[in-house]
Design a protein around this nucleic acid. Sequence first.
DNA 1: ATTGAGATTGAGACTAAATCTCAATAAATT
DNA 2: AATTTATTGAGATTTAGTCTCAATCTCAAT
Lengths: 153, 153
Amino acid sequence: MKTEQDIFLAYLKSRGLNLTAERSKILQTVFSFHRHFDLDDLYDEIRRHKARVSRATIYRTIPLLMESGLIREVFRCMDRPHYEHIYGHDHHDHMICLGCGKVLEFKDERIEKLQNEVCAEFGFESVEHRLGIRGYCRECREGQVKRRGAAGT
Amino acid sequence: MKTEQDIFLAYLKSRGLNLTAERSKILQTVFSFHRHFDLDDLYDEIRRHKARVSRATIYRTIPLLMESGLIREVFRCMDRPHYEHIYGHDHHDHMICLGCGKVLEFKDERIEKLQNEVCAEFGFESVEHRLGIRGYCRECREGQVKRRGAAGT
DNA sequence: ATTGAGATTGAGACTAAATCTCAATAAATT
DNA sequence: AATTTATTGAGATTTAGTCTCAATCTCAAT
């Protein structure tokens, strides 16, 4: 079983890049999250561990992690992109509550399958897809929870 | 059959707002497009017709059009939101080619239906959803077309 | 038609996310 | 060890989008 490091290292090598201490720290932090995160979550978490990596470096590293297939952008919330690590996790889609901002994950094989069918029809080769359903979760529908902010896929 | 104007006007009235010349021009231009558009497309097209509406006003009007259900944000391309008018059009989803930037539209009732099922399971009330599949179109797969830029949902 | 309250606009100031620059440093290669 | 190339951080820069505000417009009630 390959570790995330192995994969990232292989990707970097293939591009003539090095796995530096900063990149390693970012990678490690990304995989310490069990939730979606944005750039500031990353930055803060790294600092909390008494490490220092500049924002510029994080901005530069995120595309590398995406290209190596370790993370993906999942949706936008408060107008900022949010990410999740995908290595070792099944693919899933999201429901985003417009009331409380909560994110529910779901997976439906039948939907995935139909998507593949549609792609085949069009001769389209799918690399990835993103399905986001915006609406109101059970709790918000029942009216207890106050509004927060808009969420966008 | 209600026109777009009727709908927009009713929406504005319901909020105590007026249908001004600027809003009317924006509305008319939005519905003159047969493709996805971004804010600058709108701005340029309005100017091309010798009319003048400031960017600030366009920025202010887009949310009104969205709330009135006349347009929706469909995806991000080159990091800018793109819109389409939806009144009088069936809902559909998108395939975005990472090679040439082309956008294909498709609709599959079965997928829609399954989405509703999933929502029901979670007690989630869907307001809208967005499904974007990124990959390579037939032409790009066959290798004739050059890369352009990244597209994001 | 006139008036006044509130809505609307455009221009430019402002904000903040993201990118770029560049000098200093680190890593890999010879 | 020397050379080349990659990397970093700090801060400058860019730019989409928002906000401010004075001038104008709209509408409903006179």
